[in-house]
């Protein structure tokens, strides 16, 4: 299957390991990813925070680069949200769409299908996934962590609910997931840089409660959360945080996993060895 892919800034820079593991996973699952040509940053949180019009235009430019009737797959929940939000906004304000279409001479489709990779996996036959597995995650206790951006605020509340998809995926390969309270708690996003104490408190709470619930690691769908959890945790004892594609990649038989984990600040390899997963 062919999918168009929007990497976004995090996966292209601070979370290369996430991108690499995703490439491995798609290789094993016979998915062909085509980068959106010449994509730009979606504006992250900063653009809509101070200049809403710029934020909208940035997302719409990316959308205008998607060929007609193609599906766009996005890995970063924040980028995904910005896509969904901008599509809704031009439905409400078609005027902006016409100005931009005219300027760029490219159509912008407010109804284009833009989905997260978790959704692609959810559509796959679980038996097919199982048949592809070369390793299993037996013995691993996981706290699934979605972060705040896979939620569905009022304007985009008709989109799919992602909760449960990480659990379903990880459990199908033998891992156990714990019940815990903070699976969608915000990690602090940019406050990590602009006001570290506020983020430290949030991050310690997230990792602390995950550990109290008996988890040995967190598994997240958000690359920014993963970074914040790693750099802002001040607890003496920490547990590692995986991108869900990393564990999936290992299960499907990827061999270059060691190079992914060199980018982690909290080394997850001892845990994986201890559980005899690798």
């Amino acid at each position: 299957m062919k999918l168009y892919y929007y990497p976004g800034c995090s996966l292209a820079t601070t979370a290369k390991e996430c991108n690499r593991s995703l490439m491995e996973v798609t290789k094993f699952l016979d998915l062909e990813l085509i980068d959106i040509p010449d994509w730009n940053c979606c504006g992250s949180t900063s653009a809509h925070s101070i200049e809403r019009r710029v934020a909208l235009d940035l997302s719409l430019r990316n959308l205008s680069l998607l060929p007609r009737d193609e599906i766009l797959m996005v890995m970063c929940p924040n980028c995904l949200h910005n896509f969904h939000q901008s599509q809704q906004m031009i439905k409400l304000d078609p005027h902006r769409r016409f100005i931009l279409e005219n300027r760029w001479q490219r159509p912008i489709d407010p109804n284009a299908t833009v989905i997260h990779f978790l959704e692609v996996l959810a559509e796959m036959d679980p038996k097919f996934l199982k048949a592809k597995a070369k390793r299993e995650l037996k013995g691993l206790k996981i706290a699934p962590y979605y972060g705040c951006m896979l939620s569905r605020p009022p304007l985009v509340s008709f989109h799919r609910c992602y909760r449960g998809l990480i659990e379903k995926l990880m459990e199908s390969f033998g891992a156990k997931t714990v019940l815990w309270p903070n699976l969608t708690k915000c990690c602090g996003t940019f406050l990590s840089a602009a006001k570290p104490p506020a983020t430290i408190e949030a991050v310690n709470q997230i990792i602390g409660t995950a550990m109290e619930s008996g988890a040995q690691c967190l598994v997240t769908a958000c690359a920014m959360c993963q970074l914040n959890l790693e750099i802002r945790c001040t607890l003496k004892e920490k547990i590692p945080t995986f991108h869900f594609t990393e564990l999936l990649g290992i299960v499907l038989g990827a061999e270059d996993w060691q190079s992914w984990f060199t980018h982690h600040l909290v080394d997850p390899v001892p845990l994986l060895e201890n559980k005899k997963i690798v």
Binding site: H48, S49, C148, P154, L191, K195
Partner: peptide, 30 residues
């Protein structure tokens, strides 16, 4: 200080888009 995490509006029984509200207030302040 609002980071735009939408935790509030997911909870809001009146479906108020608090993030867009904060964005708007910020741009007026600037």
């Amino acid at each position: 200080l609002c980071v735009g995490c939408h935790t509030c509006s997911n909870q809001c029984p009146q479906a108020i888009d608090i993030v867009s509200l904060m964005d708007t207030l910020r741009s007026i302040a600037i």
